[in-house]
Amino acid sequence: MTQPLLELRGVNKSFGVVHVLHDVDFAVYPGQVTALVGDNGAGKSTLVKIIAGIYGRDTGDYLFDGEQVNVHGPRDVADLGVEVVYQDLALCDNLDIVENMFLGRELRSGIVLDDNAMEEKARETLASLSVRTVKSVRQSVASLSGGQRQTVAIAKAVLWNSKVVLLDEPTAALGVAQTRQVLDLVRRLADRGLGVVLISHNMTDVLEVADRITALYLGRVAADVFKEDVNQTQIVELITTGRSGELGIAENPATATV
C-alpha cells in the first residue's frame, strides 16, 4: 500500500478528567476518500480539530508524507497543505466568490490588490472542478444556494494546491440535488490525487463516495476498513456498539477503566 499523506499515531487527548481520544491511529491516503464516522461524542470533532491544529495533542505523533512534523497551530497545518472545510461555512456573505476564495491570502501587485489575477485563478479552479452551477464568479456569496456555497468553500480549499482536505458534514444541510453536486465534487478531489477526509452521519453518502471507513467509538478507533469489506449494517453496529462480528474493539470500552 502507498504511504499515507497524513497520519496520526497513538494520539491521546484529555480535557481535564475527560479522556476524549484513546490511542487513536488515523491515516489519510492520496487519491482516496476516507470517511470518519462515529456517534455524537465519539471524538470526531476533537480528532478533526487536532488535525487542523486548533487543539494540541497530549501524546502521539503527527506525520505528514511519512515525516514527523511539529504542528503548533492552524497556520502550520495550512502550510503543510491541509485545509479544513467547516460545517458552518466560513464564508463572508457581503463578498463575492473570488473575494471569498482568496480571503486572507489575497494576491497583490505592490500594495494594490491584483483582482484580475485572482479572478482568473478562481475561475480556473472552479472550471478544473467542473463547477457549472455558478452564474458568475463576481456574484455575491449571499445569493448562492447551500450547495453552491459548499462548492465555493471546497474550491477555496483546493485553490491552494492543498494535499489533504477535511470536509466536516458537507451535506448536512443540503437537498438531494445539491448533495449530489457536493458528493461528485468530493469524488473529483480524490481523483485528482488529494487525500480527502469526509466526516458524515449519512451512511448512504459514506458508502457511495468513501474508499476507506474509519469508525470511532467512545474515543477509540473501532475499525479502519475498506468500503468493500463492510455493509451498512456493520457500519451502524461499529458506530453504535464499537464492534460488529469479527470487526471492532475486543473489549467493551464502556466497561473498561477510563
Partner: peptide, 20 residues
C-alpha cells in the same frame, strides 16, 4: 488588502478569523 479585510470582518468576523 486592509480594505478587503475590513469588509470581511464586517460581513462575518468568524470567517475572517478562520481565514487568518
Amino acid at each position: 488588502r486592509f480594505g478587503r479585510h475590513l469588509y470581511a470582518v464586517g460581513g462575518n468576523a468568524e470567517a475572517a478569523r478562520r481565514a487568518g
